[in-house]
Each structure stands twice: as C-alpha cells, then as structure tokens.
Design a protein around this nucleic acid. Structure first.
Length: 752
DNA sequence: CTAGGGTTAG
C-alpha cells in the first residue's frame, strides 16, 4: 500500500489503546453476494422524461440531469441511463466533475461497471469523491478485490482519501478478510484519531465483528461521536453475529431510549435476534413497533416476523400474516417451508412433528404449482424436511434439480443433502454426496463423521476425521462426539482415550456430558462395567439421566439385573423429565414382575406431569407417508396382522423369544403383559406394511416416535434375515439398520 | 456528486 496522505476529518476523541491490538484471527464468514437484477424496461413516465431531455435543443443546466438519472437508477433502466448520458455529452457537460461522478455511481448501481469505468477514465480531473465512487461501485458489484486495487491507484495518484473512502475500503477488507490492509488502514486511523467519525467507526465496528471481537466492536461503537441509525444497526447485528443476541437486544433498547428511530434494516436485525433467542415476547413488541413506525407492509420485515412466529410455534399468527400479505416473494415461501421444517425439531411429540413435515412439503407443492422456481434456501429446507420424515424417495427427487440448477455447489445445500441421505439410512449415497462436494465446512465434515459412526462404520468415521485434520479444518466438540462414539462402537478403548486427550490438550476443548457418555457407553458395550464406574469416579462426574440410562441398558443386556436396578434407583432420584426414561424403567420392572415398583414409577410420572407416550411409526412408500399407531386392541385378521403373526411364528425357531413389554398408548392399561402386547407395536406393523407393499430388494424405512423396545429390536433383526430385506428404523434416539439378522447399533441402541 | 446496516439454510 502506498503511504497515506493526511486526511481532512475533524477529530477530538482519543482512541483506546485496545484498538492498537488488531488481532485478527480471520474467521471466514461467507458474505452473501448480490445477484444483479435483469435490466428493467422503463415506466412510461420515465420514458417520457428521458425523451423530453433532448427535445428542442433546450439548453439545460447540468443540475437538471440529476433527478432523471436518479429515477433511471431506481428503475434499474440501463437504456434510460445510456440515453441521458448521450444527451449530457451532446450538451457539453461530459467533463462536469459532479455530474460525471454521479453517473459513475448510477452505472455502478445498474450493475454496469464497464460503463462506470469508462466515464471515470474520461474524467479530465479526479477528486477524492470521484475515486470513492468508483471504489464503492466495485464493492457494490461484489468485486472488493478490484476496489482495493483502485484504492491503491488513488493513493499513487496522490489523492487524499476522505473518511468516506476509508470507511468504504475498510468494508472491502472486511468482506475480503484482508486483515493486512485493514491493519494498515487501522494504524493510520489510530494515528490520525479518526475512529470517532461515523463512516469510519461504523466500518471498524463491522470489521471487529467479523474478527470475532465483539468487545472491540462495541467499544469502537461507543467512541463514535455522532452515532446514527447505521452505527446502532451495525452494533446490534455485531452482537447477533457473535452469538450474543441478548446484548444486541439490550443495545436496541438503549437505542430506543436514546431517541434514535430504527429503520427497516435495524428492525430486521432485531427480529433476527429475537428469532435466535426464541424471544416471542420481544418479537411481538417489535412487531407492534414496526406497525407504529409505518413498516407494516414491508415485505422483508413481514417475512422475518412470519418466520419468527413459525419458529416460536405460533402457527395461527404466522398464517394470518401469510394470507394478509399483499405481495409474496420467494423468501416468503422459503420462510414458510423453513419455519415448518424448524417446527419439526421443536414439536412436543412425534406426531405433530410429522404433521409439520407434511405441511412443509405441501407448501412447497403449492409454490411449485404457482410456477415459482425454488432456490438454494428452498432446497436446503426440503432436504431437512425429508430427513426428518425419513422420506428417501422424496429427498432423491430433489437431488437432481440441485445438480441441474447448480445449487448443489453451495456448501450448505450439499451438506443438507449428505445429512438427508444419512438420516434416511442410506450411508452409501451420503458418502457419495460427501465425496462429490467441492468445498467442505466444519459442519460437512462433522456430519459425515457422525453419519459413519451412527451406521456403526467406525473405521470410515475415523478415516474422515483424519482427512479433516489433514486439510486443516479445526474440529469442535460435536466432531469429537462423533469420533468418540465411533471408537466406542468399535470397542477401541486406547484410541478413544487418545482422541479424548487430543481433544483436551491439542484443541483445548473441555469435555461435556456427551463425550463422557461415549466413553461410558464403550465400557458398557465391552462388559467392563466396573471400569465405567471407575471412570465416573475418576472424572468426578455426577451422572445425568442420559448416562444412567446407558448404564441401565448396558447392565440389562449383559444380564446384570441387580446393577441395573441399582442404577435405576439412582436415576429415579434425579426425577427425570424425559418420558422415555420412564418407559425404560417401566419395562424393566414389568419384565421382572416388580409390580410395586411399576406403580411407584407410574405415580412419579403423574407427579412429574410427564407426557403420555404415544407410539407412532411412519413409512413412506411412493411419496406417500403411511402412519401406524400402537393399539392393544386385537386387530381384524387382515393381511397385515396375518403376515405379522406368520413372521412371529417363523421367527420363534430362529431364537426369537417374545419379551414382555408394557402397553403404552396413553390410556392407563392393565399391568398384565402378554406377548401379544408387543406384537402390535407400531414399528412391527409399519415394517409388515412395507413388506406387503414393496417388492424385490427394496429397503424398508420406518420412522418411529419413541425409542425401540428390545422385543421389536430382536424381532426385526430376525425379520431382516427371514425376508432378506434391509430394514432401517429411525427411532427417537438413533438409527437402526437391520441387515442379515444384525443391527448397526450392535444391540446397544438405547433400547427401552 | 462519494458510505455505512439486513430476511429465509446445515
């Protein structure tokens, strides 16, 4: 960078010495790029004014051209600008600095940088404003690297940058992650005490935010002498971008108290904070404010509010907005689809989750019927919906369009695709999609590692992890959950602890319960239960519900019933809130015939107001989803129960011993359990339905609302053997892939 | 005449 001449900006504030330490661990944040709009045709009014400009050789003042150029710019009419440009030349204003500078700006805003550049090059004299126009033009056209080049040319030409120039160039650095240049400019700003200027201060605030230094971003904001709406908006979104939404909301309140009126951009930022915080109250207050300030029909704001309502589960409010909107954009449809997709994970029970998924797909169909082309946001939401529904066929149908449209090259879409294949149990398609990705983020790598681990393919999981390290992607704690669970499933004790140490020492990640749970699960699988307890003692762990459940399930399957009951008592002392935990305990006591304990647990459930457990299963066949609910009533002798009974009979000689499990369907049942109780668990029926309605070697995919019970698990293992079919069941805890009589969870899938 | 902030996604 050429040396900077002094800048003419008044300044009084001293910079905090903190500012001198611009530590920039650049966290690559992909900035969304603009999509140039198609040039528009002019409105009839505009056409008239453009043609009247040259009429009758009237001699116009140069100032007359500004409003009409502005109108052309607003209407994005390149041809309008061009014909006005011609008139300007004809009238002899072609060298007027102010007018030509404005024209540079106008061409830039119409995505015509070539013309903007030509106008600039023809200027006989260029002042700082002209240079700044060109620089900002390149930034507007998503070419920050060219903007920085022009900035250097400007300095070489000996033109002194203004505060605007510095602000613009700093923003270019921010979007380029060019922290070297930023540092030089920063030094210059510090030396000349310019940080209190709002154009510079705002840019610094964004820069620090991008450097993940929220404290600095805030302190630079505090030092801005005249904080305007944009300063406030910048600091509010800086808080949001750095994971401190509460601080952002507080800043927004401060802004209001200070009497600064937010504009629609501030309000969108605030709504996005409310969204991540799930702050429905604050959100609806902002909604009222929006209406009060007259932004009630702003499309972008309405989209955000609608999404917020959906994400908070206020479907009726969201729908009211949706149907009340006078115009709807693709973003509106996407927000609806994404909102319903989001509600799947927030749903209280599996049935409503399933209904949300169906609704999301129906909204997409409506959008499709209206002829709207989906974009990358649409596709990533759709993939996420399909994975929740375990609707492989649907998901596959969206794969090809993402290739054709090129959206698959987006890393988020591609990751969503990998995830979809994984969650639908198709690990081969998942890994194929992963290998075809051109760029991978931490999340892509982590998804693939977790996917292999979930399918019991530990070696592949660890292989991917090593590849990830090799290319220099830094794992996070979720990555290590995947790695440790891979080791745990394969019983690789030494490796597990090696990775555990690596996580703590090399990556400075503090272990959380999920990590401990993997290691404990590993000891339990290896029937080294003493070591599991030793580990708990050594790490001073206070086991949570989850860890006790692992211990119980492990002790049970190893036949160590006394230990299992001991663990169960510990678990009960925690007064669990999770209904499935109670289901595990109930089943345990039922199979041991300990009826007193059964009623004790039932009483605890009532006291804890735990949700009733509703056993649903779904199977998607030819894009239609069929659902089954557990029913203890004896079914009619239809085709389905006939097949089921037949399978049960054929399974018995192969070692299937129907275990007792409790009947749970919401109503209190008699405590007596018989084998017929588990015979009609919903997943058995869904699998039987799949066997009847598909043929050949088609894999059967079922989703289930609760955890699988041990009885169904061992039954379906045998079914996969008897029928030579692969059966994939995703229950509330994990994925079970049954193949040739084995399950990918190796019988430690947290069965109840 | 030049700037600066923003919706929906894994």
């Amino acid at each position: 960078m050429a040396s900077l001449p002094p800048v003419v900006v008044a300044n009084t504030l001293k910079l905090d010495s903190e500012f001198r330490k611009l530590s920039a661990p650049p966290l690559p944040l992909e900035k969304r790029s603009y999509t140039p709009k198609e040039p528009n045709s002019m409105s009839s009014d505009l056409k008239e004014s453009v043609s009247s400009v040259g009429e009758g050789n009237r001699k116009l003042e140069s100032s007359h051209y500004f409003p009409i150029l502005q109108e052309c710019m607003l209407q994005n009419s390149v041809s309008g600008v061009e014909s006005v440009h011609c008139q300007i030349i004809k009238s002899g204003f072609g060298e007027e600095l102010f007018l030509m500078t404005f024209l540079v700006n106008v061409y830039a805003k119409c995505w015509e940088m070539g013309s903007a550049r030509k106008v600039f090059d023809n200027l006989p004299k260029r002042n700082a404003v002209a240079w700044t126009s060109l620089i900002s033009g390149y930034i507007y056209n998503s070419r920050p690297e060219l903007a920085v080049g022009i900035f250097n040319e400007m300095l070489e030409a000996g033109v002194c940058p203004t505060n605007y120039t510095l602000g613009v160039v700093l923003n270019a650095c921010t979007s380029l992650c060019d922290f070297n240049l930023a540092k030089q400019i920063h030094g210059y700003i510090v030396k000349h005490d310019l940080a209190c200027d709002s154009s510079i201060g705002n840019a610094l605030c964004s820069l620090y935010s991008r450097c993940r230094n929220l404290a600095l971003a805030i302190s630079v904001f505090e030092n801005i002498e005249e904080k305007d709406v944009i300063s406030w908006t910048a600091v509010v979104s800086a808080c949001g971008d750095n994971g401190n939404s509460a601080k952002g909301l507080a800043m927004f309140v401060k802004m209001l108290v200070g009497g600064v009126e937010p504009n629609e951009i501030t309000l969108t930022s605030v709504l996005s904070l409310c969204c991540t915080m799930q702050a429905l109250d604050a959100g609806s207050q902002v909604h009222s404010l929006i209406i009060k300030l007259g932004y009630g029909s702003d499309l972008r704001l309405t989209n955000s509010i609608m999404y917020l309502y959906l994400k908070s589960g206020c479907i009726s409010e969201a729908k009211k907005l949706f149907f009340g909107m006078s115009s709807i954009s693709l973003v509106t449809w996407n927000a609806m689809i994404a909102g319903y997709a989001e509600m799947i994970s927030l749903a209280e029970d599996a049935l409503s989750a399933y209904l949300c998924g169906i609704e999301a797909l129906q909204i997409f169909q409506q959008m499709n019927r209206l002829g709207l082309r989906p974009d990358l946001y649409t596709f990533s939401s759709l993939f996420s919906v399909c994975s929740s529904l375990v609707a492989l066929e649907q998901g596959e149908q969206f794969h090809a369009p993402t290739i054709k449209t090129g959206f698959l090259s987006d890393v988020i879409v591609a990751t969503a695709l990998v995830n979809m294949y994984n969650k639908c149990g198709s690990i081969n398609q998942a890994s194929k999609a992963f290998l075809e990705m051109s760029t991978r983020t931490l999340i892509s790598w982590t998804s693939m590692i977790t996917a292999f681990a979930q399918h019991g393919l530990s070696e592949q999981a660890l292989h991917v992890f090593e590849d990830m390290r090799r290319v220099g992607v830094r794992p996070n704690k979720i990555t290590f959950v995947g790695v440790l669970s891979a080791c745990s499933q394969a019983g690789m004790v030494d490796q597990a602890f090696a990775y555990y140490e690596m996580m703590k020492n090399e990556y400075r990640i503090n272990p959380v319960m999920d990590h401990y749970a993997c290691l404990i699960d590993m000891f339990v699988r290896l029937d080294r239960i003493d070591e599991a307890f030793d580990f708990i003692k050594k790490e001073n762990l206070i086991p949570n519900e989850f860890i006790w459940s692992i211990l119980i399930a492990g002790c049970r399957s190893k036949g160590k019933l006394e230990l299992a009951f001991h663990a169960a008592e510990q678990l009960l002392e925690l007064e669990p809130k999770d209904s499935e935990t109670y289901l595990l305990l109930l089943n345990m006591y039922v199979s041991a015939g300990r009826w007193k304990d059964v009623s004790r647990v039932r009483k605890m459930m009532r006291d804890a107001k735990v949700d009733k457990i509703v056993d649903w299963s779904w199977i998607s066949i030819q894009n239609k989803v069929h659902s089954f609910k557990f029913s203890s009533k004896k079914h009619h002798q239809d085709e389905l129960t006939e097949l089921l009974d037949d399978l049960i009979e054929r399974a018995k000689p192969l070692g299937y011993k129907a275990e007792t499990a409790l009947e749970i369907d919401g109503e209190e049942k008699e405590e007596a359990t018989t084998t017929s109780a588990t015979a009609h668990h919903s997943e058995k029926m869904a699998v039987a339905f799949g066997l009847i309605n598909t043929s050949g070697k088609v894999e059967i995919r079922v989703t289930k609302s609760t955890g699988m019970c041990r009885d169904c698990h061992s039954f379906i293992k045998i079914v996969s053997l008897l029928t030579s079919r692969t059966v994939i069941i995703r229950d509330s805890k994990r994925l079970h892939k049954f193949h040739k009589g084995e399950c990918s969870c190796k019988d430690f899938g947290g069965l109840v």
